[in-house]
Measured scan of single mutants.
Amino acid sequence: DRYEFNINGVHFTIDDAEEELIKLIEELLKRGARAEEIEEVIRRWER
């Protein structure tokens, strides 16, 4: 599934997002994580 979200006006799209990654990102968003922090999480996840 495609997952899309915005952080401070920056648009992100993840194709074939796994449910666990989506939950992790949503938790980070609730905590007010910065875009750079979430980008790093996504990079690590994709390795």
Rank of each mutant, 00 (worst) to 15 (best):
F5I: 08
I38V: 13
E19I: 12
I42N: 01
R2M: 08
R43K: 09
R2I: 09
E27T: 15
L29T: 04
W45V: 01
V41P: 00
R43T: 08
Y3C: 03
E27I: 14
E37C: 05
I38S: 00
T13F: 13
R31D: 07
I25R: 00
E4F: 03
E19Q: 11
W45C: 01
I42C: 03
N8Q: 09
L28R: 07
L24I: 13
I25L: 09
A35G: 06
G9A: 02
A17H: 05
I38N: 00
E20P: 10
A17C: 04
L21R: 00
E36L: 06
E20F: 06
I38F: 08
F12P: 00
R47W: 11
Y3T: 03
E19A: 09
L24H: 11
L29D: 02
G32F: 09
E27H: 13
E20T: 09
R31H: 10
W45Y: 10
E40W: 08
G32E: 08
E46G: 10
E46L: 13
D15W: 15
I14K: 01
E26K: 14
N6H: 12
D1M: 14
E18N: 08
I22T: 03
F12I: 06
I42L: 10
I25T: 01
E4V: 04
V41W: 08
A17F: 05
R43Y: 10
N6A: 09
I22C: 02
A35E: 07
K30F: 15
E36P: 10
I42M: 06
E18I: 03
K23P: 02
L28S: 07
A33Q: 04
G9N: 05
R44K: 13
W45S: 01
R31L: 12
N6W: 15
F5R: 01
H11L: 14
T13I: 15
G32S: 09
V41G: 02
I14N: 01
E4I: 05
K23Q: 14
V10K: 09
K30Q: 12
E20V: 06
F5H: 01
H11S: 13
E26G: 10
G32M: 05
A35Y: 10
L28H: 11
W45I: 01
L29S: 04
G32Y: 08
E20K: 07
E37M: 07
L28F: 08
E20R: 05
I25E: 00
I38T: 01
A33G: 06
A17M: 04
I42D: 00
L24V: 14
F12L: 04
I7G: 01
I25N: 00
D1H: 14
A33M: 05
R34G: 15
R43G: 05
R44F: 14
T13S: 14
V41K: 04
E36A: 11
G9D: 07
L29C: 03
K23C: 04
R47S: 12
R34N: 14
L21Y: 02
V10I: 12
A35T: 10
R44A: 14
L28V: 06
L21P: 00
E18M: 03
Y3M: 03
N8R: 03
W45E: 02
I38R: 00
L21C: 03
L24D: 07
L24M: 13
I25Q: 00
E18A: 12
D15M: 13
T13M: 11
A33N: 04
K23T: 10
E19C: 10
R43I: 08
A33P: 06
A17L: 04
I7V: 15
I14G: 01
K30M: 14
D1E: 13
E36C: 06
A17S: 06
R34F: 12
L24Y: 09
F12M: 05
I25W: 00
A35Q: 11
R47N: 10
D1A: 12
Y3G: 02
I22V: 11
V41D: 01
V10G: 02
A33C: 06
D16Q: 13
E19M: 09
K30R: 12
G9K: 01
L28A: 14
E37F: 09
G32A: 07
A17Q: 06
I14S: 02
E20I: 05
G9H: 03
R44L: 14
E46A: 08
R44E: 12
F12C: 03
K30T: 12
R44W: 14
I7W: 04
H11I: 15
Y3D: 01
V41T: 10
F5T: 02
I38A: 04
E46S: 07
R44T: 12
E40D: 12
L29K: 04
E18K: 09
I7K: 01
K23H: 11
E39R: 09
W45D: 01
D1K: 15
E40V: 07
E20D: 10
D16R: 14
E27A: 14
T13N: 05
W45H: 03
A17R: 04
I7P: 00
E36W: 12
E36T: 09
E46F: 15
R31P: 02
E39L: 14
E26H: 12
N6D: 13
D16H: 14
E39F: 13
E36M: 08
E37P: 00
I25A: 00
